[in-house]
Design a protein around this nucleic acid. Structure first.
Length: 863
RNA sequence: GCACGGUUAGCUUAGCGGUAGAGCGACUGGUUUACACCCAGUAGGUCGGGGGUUCGAAUCCCUCACCGUGCACCA
C-alpha cells in the first residue's frame, strides 16, 4: 500500500510535480515516425505580449481535452504551440516604455528600435507560455514557434512573393482606414464600429452665381470643410435641380466649388445636400472619382490639420479644429443650427481612437480560393461547431473586399519589395534581397500580423511534421476572429497546400462577468487565472469552467463555479482515499462472482455514463461530458453506492467484500480515465497512488470501459426501489425531527422477499424490523414506499392530529397526480393516437398511484 | 434595417414533443470512522407575452417584447 492520503486535496504540489514529470518523460512530444494514426491541433497563437486570461483558459482547456482524449484513443498527437508577434500591440508596448524615457521610436531609428523590441520579447515575452504550462496544457513544447522565427518569416515572405507573382497582390493608392495614433493603415476587420453621441451641424454655403441664396448642408465633421471640393445633391431632388452646375462659396479657405449631382445622395437625409471632401471620406472619395474632383488632403498623418487648412487651423488636432470651425461658421453667420446626433464611428481596435479615412499608397491582396473556401465550409468538409457560424462566415465571404496588408510599422515582417533608386518603375519582389543592394530601397512597410497568422497551420510545422500532421484535425478558437483568422487560414491552406487546414472548428463562447459584461482591462472585471489556480488548482479551474461552458454559448463567469470544480476534485480525492483505506486493488471480479443489487445498479449506471460521455465527446459537448461524470460520480457512486456498499465492505464473508471492492475499483478506474482530459494532474496522481498503473494514465487504453460482467435488470430495479424508499423514509424522519444521526427503530411492512440490510443502513434504522403482517398502531407515522410501508414508532411523541394532517397532504398530492393520469387515459384521442408504449406507461403509473392511495387511506383509517 | 443567438426556481443553468431537473444561495437537522471543499432533508418554477400545430408543447410553427452579437447604413 502506498503512502496515506491527506484528508483535503492540495493541488499545488501534485500539479507541479506531474507537469515536470510529463515534460521530463517527453510524453507531449509528437513523433512523426509513429505508426499511430495522427491527430493534430494548432494553438491559436497568443500575442507574445499577452498574459493569460480566462478566455485563454477556456479555449486551451478545450484543446488540451481534445489532445489528451486523442492520446487515450491511441492517436499520435501533435498539439503545436507558439506565439504571435502581434505587430501593433507589441510595438505599442515598447513605444510606451520609450515614452517614459521621453523618447519616440524615431529617436532610436528603425534598426535600434527593432533590436529593442526583440530584447523586450526575450525578456518579457512568452510569459503566457509558462502560464499555459501551469494550466496543464499538453503541447509539444519542443516545436514551439514564434511568428517571427527565421523559418516562419521565410514562409511569410515567400507567400507574399508567390501571391504577387500570381497577380493577387498589388499596390495602389486607395482610401484606407488610418489610425492617427499608430500612424498606420488598418484592415476593415481592425475597425470597430462604435455608437457615438455627436452633433449634426447644419451650415450654409452661399451660391456664387446668386448672391444671397444659400444652400443648407448637414455635416458631422465641419473640421474637414477646408478639404471640400464640391457640394452634391441628388439629381432627382426638385429642390436643388436648378442649382446643379452652379457653384457655391466654401467659406474658408474661401473658394468657389461646384454644385454637382450624384445618385449617392439621399434626399431624405439632413438637408439633402452633401459637402464633398474626397480626401477624408470613402463615399466622397468615390463621388470625387466619378466627377474628377480634386482631392484636397487637409490632415497630417496624426490627424492634425496641415497648411492646406489655412493658417488658423494648422497644427490643430481634428477635434480642436472641429470646435474652431464651428465657432468660425457662427461668426460668419453661416451656422444654421446644431442638433444632437447619434451615429456610428469606426474606432481603431488597438489604439481606441476614431480612425480617419485616408488616401494612401498601400499593398492589397485579392483573396485566393474564395469560392473553394466557401464550398469547403458549405459542404461540411470543414465543420463549424456550433453550425450556425457557417452563416456568419458565408455572409462575410459573399461581401469580401480586398485586404489591405501593408502596415506603417517597424515591428513585423518587412515587405519583400525593393524599389530601384534610379529607375522608379523597376521592382524587385523576392525573398532574397537584390544582389546590388546599393541601388535599391526596400519598402519601409511591414505586413499585417494576420498575413503571417493565416499561414500558421502549415507554416508552424517543419516539413516532416507537415507531411504527417497536415491537415490538422481540430481548431478551437473564438468567433470574434472568424474573419481575421479562420476564413483566411482556409484560403491560405487551400492555396498554398492544396488542402483545407483543419476538419473541425469549434467556436467557444465569450466569457462575461456575473453581470453579463465583457471582461475588460478597463472594467477590471477579469479575474487573474493564476490566482484562481492558486486558490482552486488548475484541475479545479479547468473542470469548473468546462462544466459551465455550454456549447458555443457565452458564459457568465462566477468564481463559485470554480469553487465547485475544486470541490469535485476534493470529492474524487476522498473517494479514492476511502478506497485506499480498504487495501490494495482487487484485480477484478472473481469468476462466478455474485453481484449485489447495488453493485449491479452502479455498473449499469456506469455503462450509461460511459455512453453519455462518448456521445458528448463525439459532438464536442464538453459540458455534457463534464456534467455526466460529475453527476454519476458524486451522486450515483459516492452518495448512494459507496454508502450502500459499506455493508458489503464490512462483511465477514471475503467473497462479498471482494465483490464490492472489485466494483469500486472498476468504477474508479473508468472514471479516472474518463476524467483525465479534464483533470489531468489529479487523475494521474490517483491512478498511480491507487496502483492502476506505473505508466502515465495519458496512454491508458479506453478499450475496456464496458461492464466486466452482465448485469441482471431485476437486481438493478430492486436497488432503485430501495434507494427511492430510503429517500421517502428519510423525509419521514426529518418531518418528525428525528436527527439523521440518531439510530431509530423502524418497522417495514412488506411482501417483498429481499435483504433490507442496506435499507436499514441508509435509513440509520436500528433496529429495522421486517414484519409482513404488521398492522400499525394509532399515531405511528408511516411512509408508503416502493418496497413497503415503513413505520417510525416514536416513543412518547405520538401526535395523531399531526400525523393525520401529514398523511392528508400526501393523500391530496397522490390524488392530484392520479387524476392527471386518469384524465389522459380517459381521453380516447390519447389512447388511440399516442404510441402504445406511452399509453402503457401511463397505465402502469395509474396502477402505482392507486396502490399508494389505497395504502394511504388504510393508514389514515387506522389512526 | 438585415442576420444569428438568448429569455426555465433569488443566481448560474440542463432539458429541445410524453410525470419541469441540477449546482449555488435560503431554511431545517447532523462531530453517522472517505470527504464540513461534507452528509441528510425542506421550501422555491403558470419554462418572457400572445396566437397556432398536436391526443399531448418548456420543447415544433407564427408573432411581439426585451437582452446580446455580427453585418449594412451612418452627410
Amino acid at each position: 500500500m502506498s503512502a496515506a492520503i491527506s484528508t483535503a486535496y492540495e493541488p499545488r504540489e501534485v500539479e507541479e510535480r506531474w507537469y515536470r514529470t510529463w515534460l521530463e518523460q517527453g510524453v507531449f512530444r509528437a513523433d512523426p515516425a509513429s505508426p499511430k494514426p495522427p491527430y493534430a491541433i494548432v494553438i491559436p497563437p497568443p500575442n507574445v505580449t499577452g498574459i493569460l486570461t480566462l478566455g485563454h483558459v477556456l479555449n486551451n482547456t478545450m484543446q488540451d481535452i481534445l489532445a489528451r482524449r486523442a492520446r487515450m484513443l491511441g492517436r499520435e498527437v501533435l498539439w503545436l504551440p507558439g506565439t504571435d508577434h502581434a505587430g501593433i500591440a507589441t510595438q505599442t508596448v515598447v513605444e510606451r516604455q520609450l515614452r517614459k524615457e521621453k523618447k519616440t521610436r524615431h529617436d532610436l531609428g528603425r534598426d535600434e528600435f527593432v533590436t529593442q523590441v526583440w530584447a523586450w520579447k526575450e525578456e518579457h515575452g512568452g510569459i503566457i507560455i509558462r502560464q499555459l504550462q501551469r494550466l496543464g496544457c499538453s503541447c509539444d513544447w519542443s516545436r514551439e514557434r514564434f511568428t517571427m522565427d527565421p523559418a516562419y518569416s521565410r514562409e511569410v515572405q515567400s507567400a507574399f512573393v508567390e501571391l504577387y507573382r500570381c497577380g493577387l497582390i498589388y499596390r495602389g493608392k486607395r482610401m484606407v482606414n488610418w489610425c492617427p495614433v499608430s500612424l498606420t493603415a488598418l484592415s476593415d476587420e481592425e475597425v470597430i464600429p462604435t455608437p457615438n453621441q455627436g452633433t449634426l451641424y447644419v451650415m450654409r454655403y452661399e451660391v456664387v452665381e446668386e448672391p444671397g441664396v444659400y444652400l443648407a448642408i448637414a455635416t458631422t465633421r465641419p473640421e474637414t470643410l477646408m478639404g471640400d471640393t464640391a457640394v452634391a445633391v441628388n439629381p432627382k431632388d426638385p429642390r436643388y435641380q436648378r442649382l446643379i452646375g452652379r457653384h457655391c462659396w466654401r467659406p474658408f479657405p474661401r473658394a468657389a466649388i461646384p454644385i454637382i449631382a450624384d445618385d449617392a445622395i439621399d434626399p431624405e437625409f439632413g438637408t439633402g445636400v452633401l459637402k464633398v471632401t474626397p480626401a477624408h471620406d470613402p463615399v466622397d472619395f468615390e463621388i470625387g472619382q466619378r466627377h474628377h474632383l480634386p482631392t484636397l488632403d487637409v490632415f497630417s498623418p496624426d490627424a492634425t490639420l496641415n497648411e492646406l487648412a489655412g493658417p488658423d487651423f494648422v497644427g490643430l488636432d481634428r477635434f480642436e479644429a472641429r470646435a474652431k470651425a464651428v465657432e468660425r461658421l457662427r461668426e460668419l453667420g453661416l451656422l444654421v443650427r446644431e442638433e444632437p446626433y447619434q451615429n456610428t464611428v469606426g474606432y481603431s481596435e488597438r489604439a481606441g481612437v476614431p480612425i480617419e479615412p485616408r488616401l494612401s499608397e498601400q499593398w492589397f491582396l485579392r483573396y485566393p480560393k474564395v469560392q473553394e473556401c466557401l464550398e469547403a465550409v458549405a459542404s461540411g468538409r470543414i465543420q463549424f461547431r456550433p453550425e450556425r457560424w457557417t452563416k456568419t462566415f458565408e455572409h462575410w465571404i459573399a461581401n469580401i473586399k480586398d485586404w489591405c496588408i501593408s502596415r506603417q510599422l517597424w515591428w513585423g515582417h518587412r515587405i519583400p519589395v525593393w524599389y530601384h533608386r534610379h529607375e522608379p518603375q523597376r521592382l524587385h519582389v523576392d525573398v532574397a534581397p537584390p544582389s546590388d543592394p546599393e541601388n535599391w530601397d526596400q519598402d519601409p512597410d511591414v505586413l499585417d500580423t494576420w498575413f503571417s497568422s493565416w499561414l500558421w497551420p502549415f507554416a508552424a510545422m517543419d516539413d516532416e511534421a507537415r507531411r504527417r500532421f497536415y491537415p490538422t484535425t481540430d481548431l478551437v478558437t473564438g468567433p470574434d476572429i472568424i474573419f481575421f483568422w479562420v476564413a483566411r487560414m482556409i484560403m491560405a491552406g487551400l492555396h498554398f497546400q492544396g488542402e483545407i487546414p483543419f476538419a473541425n472548428v469549434y467556436f467557444t463562447g465569450l466569457i462575461r462577468d456575473s453581470q453579463g459584461r465583457k471582461m475588460s482591462k478597463s472594467l477590471g472585471n477579469s479575474p487573474d487565472p493564476l490566482e484562481l489556480i492558486a486558490k482552486y488548482g488548475a484541475d479545479g479551474l479547468r473542470f469548473g469552467l468546462m462544466r459551465i461552458a455550454p456549447h458555443g454559448q457565452d458564459i457568465r463567469f462566477d468564481e463559485k463555479q470554480i469553487e465547485e470544480g475544486r470541490n469535485f476534485a476534493n470529492k474524487l480525492w476522498n473517494a479514492c482515499r476511502f478506497r485506499q483505506m480498504q487495501g490494495p486493488l482487487t484485480g477484478g471480479f472473481q469468476p462466478g462472482q455474485q453481484l449485489s443489487p447495488y453493485t449491479a445498479r452502479i455498473l449499469h449506471q456506469l455503462e450509461a455514463t460511459v455512453a453519455r460521455v462518448n456521445r458528448g465527446y463525439a459532438e464536442y459537448l464538453f459540458t455534457e461530458v463534464a456534467q455526466s461524470i460529475y453527476d454519476f460520480f458524486w451522486s450515483d457512486f459516492c452518495d448512494w453506492y459507496l454508502e450502500a456498499a459499506k455493508n458489503e465492505i464490512n462483511s465477514t464473508d471475503p467473497a462479498i467484500r471482494q465483490g464490492a471492492l472489485a466494483a469500486i475499483d472498476h468504477v474508479i478506474g473508468v472514471v479516472l480515465r474518463l476524467l483525465h482530459p479534464f483533470m489531468p494532474h489529479l487523475t494521474e496522481e490517483l491512478w498511480h497512488r491507487l496502483g492502476f498503473g506505473t505508466q502515465t494514465i495519458q496512454f491508458a487504453t479506453l478499450d475496456d470501459l464496458a461492464a466486466p460482467m452482465p448485469v441482471d435488470p431485476a437486481l438493478v430495479r430492486f436497488a432503485g426501489q430501495v434507494y427511492d424508499s430510503v429517500s421517502i423514509a428519510r423525509n419521514l424522519r426529518a418531518e418528525h425531527h428525528v436527527p439523521s444521526n440518531r439510530k431509530a427503530r423502524m418497522i417495514l411492512k412488506t411482501d417483498v422477499d429481499g435483504d433490507f440490510a442496506v435499507l436499514a443502513r441508509l435509513l440509520n434504522a436500528e433496529p429495522l424490523e421486517v414484519r409482513p403482517d404488521y398492522e400499525g398502531e394509532p399515531g405511528v407515522p408511516v411512509a408508503i414506499t416502493p418496497v413497503g410501508q415503513i413505520f417510525l414508532p416514536l416513543v412518547g411523541l405520538v401526535d395523531t392530529g399531526a400525523e393525520r394532517e401529514r398523511l392528508g397532504k400526501e393523500l391530496a398530492k397522490v390524488e392530484a397526480e392520479l387524476e392527471t393520469v386518469h384524465k389522459k387515459l380517459a381521453n380516447e384521442n390519447f389512447v388511440q393516437r399516442a404510441p402504445a408504449a406511452v399509453v402503457a406507461e401511463h397505465r402502469q403509473r395509474a396502477g402505482a398511484f392507486l396502490e399508494r392511495l389505497e395504502q394511504l387511506r388504510e393508514r389514515v383509517a387506522a389512526l
